[in-house]
Amino acid sequence: MDSINLFPLYLSLAVSLCSTLISLVIGLPIAYFLSCKRGRVVNFLDTLTSLPIVLPPTVLGYYLLVLLGRQSPVGQFLENSLGIMLVFTPVGVVIAATIVSIPYLIKSSKTAFLEINEDYLNAARLLGRNEFNIFLTIIIPISWRGIVAGLTMCFMRALGDFGTTLMIGGNIPGQTSTMPIAIYNALQAGNKDMANMLVLIMTGIAVMVLFIINSMEQKVKRG
């Protein structure tokens, strides 16, 4: 039996963590903006941020290639001026994972923000706080459950992405092949032990995350 190469696991975990963090930093302000403003720009942004949920992953990957590939203006700029290559690199994989997973965080947080009673915010305003301060002291603490739920879905979606990652990152063992791609590779190569092992690990992680969420929810209910 070949020794099992666990690099895909490390890569997947690192990529998912990175993309979840990026989603948090970019997604929360977007969710807040979408929850408190109205108008055409907001509707457009809302649709745009939901698009990755409904688009097939390969289509999404294709768009990303067109947008960020070596032939695109953005890709050329990054390559010529900064020496950064996105396509077929781990950075590209992170971008792909972020794009497919960020809508889940935005949707979940936005719903949580919208449920907050406007009176809380008005009370805080009259007590002399500015909007950013209110965001940190009132909005986030009240809606943290929705945000955590969004983060979890975001993480799992990033962990499990296949199509978009394959389009952008390719399938370079030891560099860009994440867990789902490694499972596919193992199956293609007839390495059943490897495939079984990786599938078990993935299932284990999924069950564990669900377990953590459930026990957290129960704690909140009891507390």
Binding site: N117, D119, Y120, N122, A123, A124, R125, L126, L127, G128, R129, N130, I138, P141, I142
Partner: peptide, 20 residues
């Protein structure tokens, strides 16, 4: 003038105490 600079006290119908 934004609300935070008006120095107004307001007791809401449901009090709007911060639940957390």
């Amino acid at each position: 003038l934004p609300s935070r600079k008006r120095k107004i006290g307001y007791v809401f119908q449901n009090y709007a105490l911060f639940p957390h």
